[in-house]
């Protein structure tokens, strides 16, 4: 009996770090995602976004087999890539995002559609940084990434959300505008209605944004 108890305690002690680690990951991610939600729902603050990117990156560094911290860090850097001061810093943020996604891609548990959507988002930021001279390269690449995402999971609502934003900001003369974008936001909403993330940590952003854009389209 004594021995059995001893064995149980030893086993418990041995297991604790593993449990704790997993628990730690869940806790850290949940907390970071809460801030993430706050940050991405309003006007993003660059310093807070950088802090958030750092947080995800730290989690990623401690958890080499998790793709989600890298994915969210890339998202944060993508947002910084949109809001950066100048072309050079924007590109530096986006280079960082690309590097994080490259790491995420090598992790077996990754989701190809979500990574492709994120790549499209980063590409959109590159395009927005200097549209006049980047249209040719990044305009086409944006479409390519979304095509990859569709192939992998056509029900991912973020594909249509991004497609919609792209058209929304393209002038009407070039086939864009609110009218052209609206059906895509509608499609995204429809997909959001049925979308179930694999876990609470998995990507589920974009619904609020889509709603906002739909309102703009109706104005």
């Amino acid at each position: 009996m004594k021995n059995l108890l001893l064995l149980a305690v030893v086993a418990l002690l041995a297991l604790t770090p593993a449990f704790a680690q997993n628990e730690k990951y869940l806790q850290a991610m949940t907390a970071a995602l809460q801030t993430f939600q706050q940050q991405t729902s309003g006007e993003p603050d660059a310093a807070a976004m950088q802090e958030l990117a750092n947080r995800f990156e730290r989690i990623g560094a401690a958890e080499p087999n998790e793709w989600l911290p890298r994915y969210y860090a890339a998202y944060a850097y993508g947002t910084l890539g949109f809001s950066g001061d100048n072309l050079r810093t924007k590109d530096q943020y986006l280079d960082k995002a690309d590097a994080l996604l490259k790491e995420a891609e090598r992790i077996p548990s990754q989701q190809a559609d979500e990574l492709a959507v994120m790549k499209a988002y980063i590409t959109q930021a590159r395009l927005a940084a200097d549209p006049m001279s980047r249209w040719q390269t990044y305009g086409a690449q944006f479409g390519e990434y979304l095509a990859i995402a569709k192939k992998s999971n056509a029900n991912n609502p973020r594909i249509y959300y991004l497609e919609g934003t792209n058209l929304f900001y393209t002038p009407e003369e070039y086939g864009g505008g609110k009218k052209a974008a609206k059906p895509l936001f509608e499609k995204a909403m429809e997909k959001y209605a049925h979308f179930q993330p694999a876990s609470t940590l998995h990507p589920q952003w974009g619904k609020e944004h889509t709603r906002w854009f739909m309102e703009q389209c109706n104005q």
């Binding site: 950088q50 802090e51 750092n54 947080r55 990156e57 560094a61």
Partner: peptide, 19 residues
């Protein structure tokens, strides 16, 4: 350098530099 990521490798411990 504000916004730099400082952490202990392999742990969750770390922070971002202030302004």
């Amino acid at each position: 350098l504000p916004g730099a990521n400082v952490f202990l490798k392999g742990t969750y411990d770390g922070t971002t530099t202030d302004t």
